[in-house]
Computed example of a mutant assay.
Amino acid sequence: MVGQLTGGTTSNRYFRYEVVGLRQNEETDKTNYPIRSSGSVFITVAENRMNQEMQRITRLGGKIINIEPLSFEPKTDS
């Protein structure tokens, strides 16, 4: 999930969510020890998918601790 890109191609604006507390999946939640040792996961989301992704993160038990805008500007050779 690190660096995962979510969303459609209609939006030019993207945001990076820093998320803590995401569960791996239903099977790994049954273990008695933590699976992930690092605290943060970074998810890149298109502007038009922000609300849906926030809801998904909440359902998975995660907490968004930071949102920052990203700028994807095409490089031009000069």
Rank of each mutant, 00 (worst) to 15 (best):
M1L: 12
M1R: 11
V2F: 12
G3E: 02
Q4W: 01
Q4F: 02
Q4G: 05
Q4H: 07
L5P: 00
L5E: 01
L5W: 12
T6S: 01
T6E: 08
T6N: 01
G7V: 02
G7D: 01
G8P: 00
G8Q: 00
G8D: 01
T10R: 02
T10M: 06
T10K: 07
T10N: 05
S11A: 15
N12D: 03
R13M: 10
R13D: 10
R13G: 03
Y14E: 02
F15C: 00
F15W: 14
R16I: 06
Y17M: 15
Y17D: 13
Y17T: 03
E18P: 06
E18I: 02
E18F: 13
V19G: 05
V19Y: 05
V19F: 11
V20Q: 10
V20K: 11
G21M: 05
G21S: 04
L22I: 09
R23V: 06
R23Y: 01
Q24L: 02
N25Y: 04
N25R: 06
N25G: 10
N25S: 12
N25W: 10
E26S: 07
E27R: 09
D29S: 07
K30F: 12
T31N: 13
T31S: 08
N32T: 13
N32V: 05
N32Q: 07
Y33A: 10
P34Q: 08
P34E: 04
I35H: 09
R36M: 03
R36Y: 02
S38K: 13
G39P: 07
G39N: 14
G39C: 04
V41I: 15
V41P: 00
V41R: 12
F42C: 04
F42R: 12
F42V: 01
I43K: 02
I43V: 02
T44H: 13
T44S: 09
V45W: 00
V45K: 00
V45Y: 01
E47N: 04
E47V: 00
R49Y: 08
R49P: 00
R49F: 07
N51S: 10
N51K: 14
N51Q: 13
M54Y: 07
M54T: 11
Q55S: 11
I57Y: 10
I57P: 08
T58V: 00
T58A: 14
T58R: 11
L60Y: 13
G61P: 11
G62L: 05
K63M: 14
K63V: 15
K63P: 03
K63C: 11
K63W: 04
K63G: 03
I64P: 09
I65W: 04
N66S: 14
N66Y: 09
I67H: 06
E68S: 15
E68G: 13
E68T: 04
E68Q: 12
P69K: 06
P69T: 01
L70V: 00
L70S: 05
S71R: 14
F72N: 08
F72M: 04
F72L: 12
F72S: 00
E73V: 07
E73H: 04
E73Q: 08
P74S: 15
K75Q: 11
K75L: 13
K75H: 07
T76F: 12
T76H: 09
D77T: 09
S78D: 14
S78K: 13
S78E: 08
S78F: 03
